[in-house]
Design a protein around this nucleic acid. Structure first.
Lengths: 142, 142
DNA sequence: CTGAGAATGAGAATCAGACTCATTCTTGAT
DNA sequence: ATCAAGAATGAGTCTGATTCTCATTCTCAG
């Protein structure tokens, strides 16, 4: 759980000029408890266990949170977008996707982050976000 | 244009036990001329200018070429898959996406590749492919 | 407490991508 | 060159994710 993140997120949303809403609050609460990315379908199911939330509301909420850089979008190539809270300290992780069993394994690597920052700077491209996905076979499936 | 690649691609497809087909040949020819990734819709349009090809055929062809590692799939987070020929020398590039104007800019960086290889090895994950996407604002939009 | 504007819910509309099947090529064998 | 078997293609249908619409409900400043 990350109480700091959920409070921060709600504060930023308010400052951006949005009213509070039950659906979005529930989503923020849910995401603050996750270790890795969730798809909209997964979000809908988990929220439904406590308080049904319309799919459209979930999409609207993730879109808003993403535009405010409060969550990041993870695309592992299966046609389904996943979202996870962004770390406010700018440390963050990327993903290993096992193409055999489908598990999504988070990892972080400072060296990789440095290499990426360097690339963006070299090319004069103002990077706001980046995504790295490794595809392969996990230890269990090998 | 990359004549070597298109010939190599056709040879590998044949060796994999596939008959030749006009649609797939046209796709290979098209991709050999591209510098960066194309979506299926773009492929369909460009091929249509010379010789109409059914969407299903394009999907089938890219799926096959991808499974043979002749092309790589690029996912920039807009819900549309793009494909580009894979370099046979294992050097390859990644992408900068300008979230303002939408341009897709290819780049390559050996240091980044090294960092990625190291990460996969460290985690005992047999990586077959990887993808790096930087989002931000390009020079022109700044 | 109230009205204006924002958020939500339910379902329709879109759009990418996968599937189906009848028709048309390819190719190895004759 | 001809043929049959199997592969590839095309057109359309189907599915599933995401977006849009609009009526209803909620939030909040006054």
């Amino acid at each position: 759980m990350d109480r700091h993140w959920s409070e921060e997120a709600r504060a930023i949303v308010r400052r951006a000029g949005h009213n509070r809403g039950a659906a979005r609050d529930a989503l923020i609460e849910l995401l603050s408890d996750q270790d890795c990315a969730l798809s909209v379908a997964e979000i809908e199911t988990r929220l439904g266990a406590q308080r049904p939330v319309a799919r459209a509301s979930v999409y609207r909420a993730v879109e808003l949170l993403h535009s405010l850089h409060l969550i990041t979008r993870v695309d592992i190539g299966d046609g389904v977008a996943r979202y996870e809270r962004a770390a406010y300290d700018h440390s963050h992780h990327h993903h290993l996707v096992c193409d055999s069993c489908g598990v999504l394994i988070p990892f972080e690597d400072p060296g990789l982050e440095q290499a990426i920052d360097r690339v963006g700077a070299q090319l004069g491209f103002a990077t706001t976000e980046h995504e790295v996905t490794l595809h392969g076979t996990c230890v269990r499936c090998n």
